[in-house]
Simulated assay, not measured.
Amino acid sequence: MALPKTTQEYYLPQRVQAGLDKLTLRESVVRPPKSQEVLVKVHAVSLNYRDLVIVTGGYPGQVGDSIVPCSDLAGEIIALGEDVTGWKVGDRVSANFCTDHVYGDPTRETMATALGGPIDGTLTQFKNVPAHSLVHIPSNLNFEEAATLPCAAVTAWNALQGPVPLKGGDYVLVLGTGGVSVFALQFAVAMGATVIATSSSNAKLEFVKTLGAHHTINYKNTPDWDTEVLKITGGRGVDHVIEVGGTGTLPKSIRSTRMAGWIHTIGFLSGEHPDTSKLILSFLSGGITFRPILIGSRYQFEDMNRLIEARQIKPVVNKVFDFKQTREAYEYLQSQKHIGKIVIKLFD
């Protein structure tokens, strides 16, 4: 089969001129894969909140000019570098968020290989990636479903399977119904935990009940949702919190957590800024571990995929957009109307 010579891809011309209207489609040359690379035909890409703030100019991390955005892909191998072993043309694959984070803790060097930030991302029809970054797509998922895994799912898995892994009977509090929170809910339920989910939407809370959430709290109707969490847990508090709000929700997350529990922080959606000295004292007095999550390794990705296959877990794909509707997909993400993940389909 003749390899493609060009690829259609979206890019952000200059970071200082960020904005959804600046997201531009261009044609680029496809080079043959290097000796340890594979060329992937990208069938689907999913969007994360990180992708939105990169394009709109609010991302605090490293981003280059003329960057191709997005970190998540699912596709098939169409060519192999001459020294690649263990893979074949036609294999269905995803690449890890940081292509060089194979195992162990993240480092500055591995974080410098984060797709769609320091290096070009996945919003392109054809992409060369290092063979060591690849994982097989779970056999029970299609491309659109598998595209949701590299960032949100691996982050949720890393949170629940960290230094003190989740065990059956634990209580898990998930904030909101975005990608990470929904995956954490699904994984926690599959592993025998009791899940408490929050949202400002009763419709979204009814939906997460269908995914296995045992208790739900509308934080708009119940502003003191931390008090409700303590009631549900008999005053003990939860073992794990999936904290996506940031400093605005952190005080109540602390009050919701048991002595020596874990708060896994992922996002920064809430703009409030409480007194940090009081936060530190709250952590100290409760013996609570505050653990920022930096996605995860390829090994963690592989472990997670085994659970997905074993328990036949299906990612929640809220809406699929065509490649030429990419701006509309970003706008839909910005609207926060979704539950779960938003996917862009590159090929029919």
Rank of each mutant, 00 (worst) to 15 (best):
K5G: 02
Q8S: 14
Y11T: 11
P13F: 00
Q14T: 15
R15M: 05
R15E: 01
R15Q: 13
V16R: 12
Q17R: 10
D21T: 02
K22D: 00
K22Y: 00
T24F: 01
L25G: 01
E27G: 06
E27M: 10
V29L: 06
V30K: 07
V40G: 04
H43L: 06
A44K: 13
G57Y: 11
G57W: 03
G58P: 07
Q62C: 10
I67K: 09
V68H: 03
C70I: 02
S71I: 05
I77K: 11
L80A: 07
E82Q: 14
T85V: 11
N96P: 07
F97D: 01
C98N: 15
T99Y: 08
Y103N: 15
G104K: 07
G104P: 00
D105Y: 08
A114C: 15
A114K: 02
T122E: 05
T122A: 03
V129G: 08
P130C: 12
L134K: 07
I137C: 10
P138A: 12
N140Y: 04
L141D: 09
E144M: 03
A146H: 11
A147N: 09
P150D: 14
C151G: 02
A152E: 11
A153S: 15
A156N: 01
A156P: 00
Q161R: 09
P165Q: 08
L166S: 04
K167G: 04
G168V: 01
G168E: 12
V174I: 15
V174A: 08
G176D: 10
T177K: 10
G178M: 10
G179A: 15
Q186A: 04
A190N: 01
A190P: 01
A190E: 06
T198E: 14
N202K: 14
K204P: 05
L205E: 11
F207P: 09
K209T: 08
A213Q: 11
N218G: 07
Y219T: 08
N221S: 14
P223C: 05
D224G: 02
D226Y: 10
T227K: 15
V229P: 09
K231R: 14
I232P: 02
V238S: 05
T249Y: 03
T249L: 08
L250V: 07
T257V: 14
M259K: 15
I263K: 01
H264F: 09
T265L: 12
T265Q: 13
F268Y: 08
S270A: 15
P274H: 03
K278V: 08
L281V: 04
S285W: 15
I288K: 03
T289I: 00
F290Y: 15
R291E: 01
I293V: 15
I295G: 00
I295T: 13
G296D: 12
G296T: 10
S297A: 07
R298Y: 06
F301C: 02
D303V: 05
M304T: 03
M304Y: 08
I308L: 12
R311Y: 13
Q312G: 14
I313S: 10
K314D: 09
K314T: 15
P315H: 12
V320R: 02
F323S: 00
K324C: 02
T326V: 03
E328R: 02
Y330A: 08
Y332N: 10
S335G: 10
G340H: 14
I342M: 03
K345M: 06
F347G: 02
F347N: 08
D348E: 12
D348S: 11
